[in-house]
Nucleic acid binder design. Sequence first.
DNA 1: CAGAATCGTGACGTTTTGTCACAAGCCAGC
DNA 2: GCTGGCTTGTGACAAAACGTCACGATTCTG
Lengths: 206, 206
Amino acid sequence: MPERLTVGVAARLSRYLQVLSQARKMGKERISSQEISEYTNINATQIRRDLSAFGRFGKRGVGYRTDALLDEIRQILRTQGQHNIALAGAGRLGSAIASSPIFAEHGITVAAILEVDPEKIGQRVGNLTVSSVDDVAQVCRERNIIVGVIAVPAETAQDAADALIGAGVKIIFNYSEALLDVPSDVSVHTSNPAVDLLYALYFHLT
Amino acid sequence: MPERLTVGVAARLSRYLQVLSQARKMGKERISSQEISEYTNINATQIRRDLSAFGRFGKRGVGYRTDALLDEIRQILRTQGQHNIALAGAGRLGSAIASSPIFAEHGITVAAILEVDPEKIGQRVGNLTVSSVDDVAQVCRERNIIVGVIAVPAETAQDAADALIGAGVKIIFNYSEALLDVPSDVSVHTSNPAVDLLYALYFHLT
DNA sequence: CAGAATCGTGACGTTTTGTCACAAGCCAGC
DNA sequence: GCTGGCTTGTGACAAAACGTCACGATTCTG
């Protein structure tokens, strides 16, 4: 059992996690490495090797129990508990994120929504009330929140990032087009669907 | 110059594309491999090596011209032109995608929005009118659309996928939690922010 | 013109991944 | 209970990708 996962292994395990949670939702109780391979485009032997590095989770001739494997991978990634995050932006994207079941399914709860527009503060989104910057900072500290999601336009993204960082956030998921300047102890994960699309397109065209 | 990019190289080039487009937006005219490295966490030597495999784009002692490098990478990825895509789902997430400038900035246009809810058909989202399944199929064929984005709840995701595939779509970006069954000539790219978050969390906690 | 910065690139070791092969174990059907 | 078909777990090895150091060449600044 490795001491610390390499980037590649952790990335693949996340991918398994994703497929397994989808598979469980579809009612699949068992799944084989071959099936996971088809959904992830990761070599089946590699999948078995990745998993067997942490224990014997499968049954020969049968495959893996979806539920059990999900738990095992969560344990390996040490992300079993409940996680609270803060969300900046109560616009269309922000509301979509706040009301999506996708986070709850993985034990992630949006615990605070931050917005600068005074008209939006106080409104309800999902089962949360939109807060001002000050309130968010308090909630983050109280509940020890270290993950923030930025779903505001590029113009105000840096402000949102600064506010979150001021509240103690160390990991930022940036859904804006802005390039964020952050202290070195904060990591930024920017997601850009358009670029992902161009990437996929390249492989389709060649 | 390689005949065909490997997955790793193409993935890194997309990452550069993302950072460069952000940097250009921030008014940065020039950027060094070191700076790109800080934003992407990819080794600076590797970045220079990746780029120099296709030409000498930089100036020694200076760095790269943001604009020029953007164009070069677009050319390498063969994604310079205009691309039309179809979108399934006119809810919160769908509207957010349709109105986001992020696609337009990379030459991607949402050319049709598909929705099953009869109440939503005919409504305007951004500068598009929500269409029924039949109309989308026609638009896709006319404009040769091969990319579809699914932004509907998990329950109707498979239906949306079937509709898009019926209209000729070959690449699907799935923002639902459903596991999609598709013919082998269609590729599915599922995005799951929650899993990405757990992945990032692992590296923060260790 | 000196000095600092940065690219382009060779060289080399390390790590990661892909692939084949196959024994061991499990289940279904008969 | 036995046979045949799956599927896992794992060894072995080749191939590919990556990280790193080094360093000449080039460009800008002052």
